[in-house]
Design a protein around this nucleic acid. Structure first.
Lengths: 210, 210
DNA sequence: TCGGATCAGTACCGCTCGGTACACAATTTG
DNA sequence: CAAATTGTGTACCGAGCGGTACTGATCCGA
């Protein structure tokens, strides 16, 4: 479709990226429209024309986040065994929540776990998307049981809940300023614990780094 | 000291309790002064006279929370062995974050992990108090190494970080509505993982419930 | 070159925020 | 009783909130 009217004077993708970082650092309620427009380099009417409302902007930011910052989760799910799925998930999560070029922690939690009653939908939306990820991990574990790299009596949902609890706790630690190397240690403890408790089949060659 | 002037028309302790619950459910920024005064049953000037400011009220609420809702942590630290410390901590944490008579989750996280730049001190204060608890757990593990119920090569700080990550993740799960029984499973997985990885000396009689 | 369409910028909307001035009520002390 | 002291309730403060009306500027197709 050919363009009609005056062309947009800013890159919507880049503006969304800036908004994402503000939401990540300050949370949904803590990010004011002034904070957002200042970071995005546009005025409010442009923001509303391009993104609809503050809440729609937030949801689009979360979608962008899921695509470009949670990609490691999809890579993890594609690993051949449950052990490697968890190893990838835990280790990549440490990197993701401590990237020097991004805010610390995870948007899904920093965005807001508690909100005023007006914005309860935002907290609910974030909680729901985290639980959806957990459900996907449980499904992956169910497949692992079928494929024999988890024992038949393993509880996929409970194991997934354990792994996600660790990653969420790590995200909170990162947001509190805990260093990447410290979180790496924790991830290895959690991984070894997962292996011991789940009875997961281990990979042939040890891949625990020195 | 004898009373002078008009006596206070409300119970400050009970009012603080109501404020605590509002902060717990809605977070520091999500709780407006109107929300607070409505729940406390007093007017704003009374609140300011009795508690100073919104932030001071919050800090007092957190102190009260630490005393009456985190008591299980002190009980846990008093257990005779590292294994029992962790078992108590994880199991009692599940109960604490899913009490039917309280908001779901944990005030220290629901209070706010991310804030507007004006309120950054609040998020920092909460993060600091969580890390202080973790440090206390690490110290308890150091003692356990000395007492021989953790092996000499155990890393107290890393183990403490692991345990706290799990409890924080569980708190987030609870706030998202995950049921107590589900979190109990997760706690048992984490406990068994801790035992396996740390090499903690197990208690003589198995105390894993059916 | 002109009309329709879309975007940008200013200036504003009603509302709520955290916080307070002030008059009045209730109590103790003399 | 009066004076001193402290809490209560109303009514208000300046500031910032999320969101928008409106005026120009800038593009396209005819």
């Amino acid at each position: 479709m050919p363009q009609r009217g005056r062309p947009r004077g800013f890159d919507a993708d880049e503006a969304l990226e800036r908004a994402l970082e503000v939401f990540w650092r300050q949370g949904y309620e803590g990010a004011s429209m002034s904070d957002l427009t200042a970071a995005m380099g546009i005025n409010k009417p442009s923001l509303y024309a391009a993104f609809g409302s503050k809440e729609e902007l937030f949801r689009k930011a979360v979608a962008r986040y899921a695509e470009q910052d949670m990609g490691y989760a999809r890579r993890a799910f594609a690993q051949p065994t449950a052990y490697e799925v968890v190893a990838t998930l835990l280790r990549e999560n440490v990197l993701a929540v401590t990237r020097p070029d991004r805010p610390a922690g995870c948007l899904s939690i920093q965005g807001g776990t508690a909100c005023s009653s007006d914005n309860a939908a935002v907290a609910g939306f974030l909680a729901g998307s985290r639980l959806a990820g957990e459900h996907a991990l449980a499904d992956r574990f169910t497949r692992a049981v079928a494929e024999g790299d988890l024992p038949a009596d393993a509880d996929p949902a409970a194991l997934a809940r354990f792994v996600m609890s660790v990653t969420e706790g790590q995200a909170i630690h990162a947001a509190a300023g805990v260093a990447r190397e410290a979180l790496r240690q924790t991830a290895e403890i959690a991984l070894a614990g997962f292996a011991a408790v789940s009875g997961a089949r281990l990979p042939a060659r040890a891949d625990t780094p020195a």
